[in-house]
């Protein structure tokens, strides 16, 4: 795979993660536990979709086939999406949403900080802005993890259950494909494996404060998701998300 194709795929992955996660969060709109949280979750959803738009646009530009962010978002099939399975899982209950968000935010925060130093100027610009937004998302999700973990017996049980479930999908976050390893060499992207210790430290601190327990087993590293191996959930998610755009191909909205 040539360097440009590797970068395009990397950008698609960054964009797809945020598009799919933003979409999942948007499902809470009008259904959150309290009005203030409706606003908070929607705020994060908006930030993520905005970031996705930027990453996908850049990917489309570099790809050079005339595809813009919408073409990529609405007219690729699930096998072509490069997001991590973690973000496509259904939103579950509030505890699952928060826990999944927290684990992703901690990763996203460190990743974007590293990418803000990328050798690629376009990527650097997007990452810098996105890192600030993600710092706020992380603050929100971390504070909720603590409140759910150290709230009532029920919230503690739900949060622990959420952590146990989401944890097993996090291994994949730190596995680089050979193409990504090449990007690391050319100083465009950080070594993903190298982010794991700092991610773990952030996560550990919050989990301890929340009285929850990290599952002991190191989560299994995913392999192959980058080649389009997803859970069954992505198919239904995209079927809904893309349905109207696909019903009127070529239309302007």
């Amino acid at each position: 795979m040539d360097a440009n194709a590797a970068l395009v795929d990397f950008l698609l992955g960054l964009g797809d993660d945020r598009l799919v996660l933003g979409h999942r969060l948007s499902e809470w709109c009008g259904h959150a536990p309290i009005l203030e949280e409706d606003i908070a979750l929607t705020n994060i959803s908006l930030d993520l979709i905005g970031q996705a738009n930027l990453f996908l646009s850049l990917a489309g530009d570099l790809e050079g086939k005339g595809r813009d962010a919408d073409a990529l978002a609405y007219f690729r099939i699930d096998r072509e999406f490069l997001n991590h399975p973690l973000v496509e899982l259904p939103k579950g209950d509030f505890a699952f949403t928060i826990m999944r968000q927290f684990l992703f935010d901690a990763f996203g925060y460190h990743l974007l900080q590293a990418l803000a130093e990328s050798g690629h100027q376009g990527l650097r610009g997007i990452a810098g802005k996105s890192a600030k937004e993600t710092a706020y998302h992380l603050r929100h999700s971390a504070e909720w993890v603590v409140r759910l973990g150290d709230g009532t017996d029920e919230s503690h049980a739900r949060a622990q259950s959420a952590l146990d479930e989401a944890w097993r999908w996090t291994g994949a976050l730190f596995v680089s494909t050979p193409a990504e390893a090449a990007l690391t060499k050319s100083r465009v992207a950080p070594d993903l494996g190298g982010l794991e210790p700092v991610w773990r430290a952030s996560v550990n601190e919050v989990i301890q404060n929340s009285t929850l327990e990290l599952p002991e087993a190191k989560p299994p590293a995913g392999k192959g998701y980058r080649r389009g191996d997803h859970t069954e959930h992505l198919g239904t998610l995209l079927a809904e998300m893309q349905s109207l755009a696909r019903a009127h191909p070529g239309a302007t909205w």
């Binding site: 309290i34 901690a106 919050v206």
Partner: peptide
Amino acid sequence: RAHDDGAWVRAAAEAYAAKRNGHNRATAA
């Protein structure tokens, strides 16, 4: 449904605040 499903969440936040008297803040990053 949103209100009923959310009751345990609202209760959790209040329980936490009662325990802490709302002073501490967990650090994240």
